[in-house]
Amino acid sequence: MGLESADKGVLMAEFKELDKDGSGYLSRDELKYALTRLYENIDLKLTDADIQSLLNQADKNKDGKIQIEEFMTLI
């Protein structure tokens, strides 16, 4: 079961909003900001180790950045 087209559009828009420098990927700092904001909404605090663990899990090609495809699997 894949993502519906509308879901992909929402995720792509969110990705572009989070990609502050327009590089086409999320840096560790951009990802940290996104996750901190997301988890604060559900009253859960993330440590730097938590964020690094999520980054490591999502970063399938191990380049230290999150591309849109990796972001979609993370969310």
Rank of each mutant, 00 (worst) to 15 (best):
M1T: 14
G2M: 09
L3Y: 14
L3Q: 09
L3W: 13
E4I: 08
A6Y: 09
D7F: 08
D7S: 14
K8I: 15
G9M: 12
G9A: 15
L11K: 05
M12Y: 13
M12G: 11
A13I: 07
E14R: 12
F15D: 07
F15I: 06
F15W: 04
K16T: 13
E17Y: 06
E17P: 01
D19Q: 01
K20G: 10
K20E: 15
K20L: 11
D21Q: 10
D21A: 08
G22T: 10
Y25K: 06
Y25P: 02
L26Q: 09
L26P: 11
S27G: 13
S27M: 03
S27V: 08
R28T: 11
R28A: 10
D29E: 15
E30Y: 06
L31C: 08
K32T: 15
K32E: 14
K32G: 07
Y33S: 12
Y33H: 12
Y33P: 00
A34D: 05
A34P: 05
T36D: 11
T36W: 06
T36L: 04
T36M: 04
R37N: 14
R37V: 14
L38R: 14
Y39G: 02
E40A: 06
N41I: 01
N41G: 15
I42D: 03
L44M: 10
K45A: 07
K45Q: 11
L46M: 09
D48A: 06
A49S: 12
D50N: 14
D50E: 07
S53K: 09
L54A: 14
L55Q: 09
L55N: 06
N56A: 09
N56F: 02
Q57R: 04
Q57T: 10
A58D: 07
D59N: 04
K60P: 02
N61A: 00
N61P: 06
K62G: 00
K62A: 03
K62Y: 00
D63R: 00
D63S: 06
D63K: 01
G64Q: 04
G64E: 07
K65R: 13
K65G: 02
K65Q: 14
I66W: 02
Q67A: 07
I68Y: 13
I68K: 00
I68W: 04
E69Q: 07
E70Q: 02
E70K: 00
E70I: 01
M72Q: 10
T73K: 02
T73H: 04
L74D: 08
I75G: 09
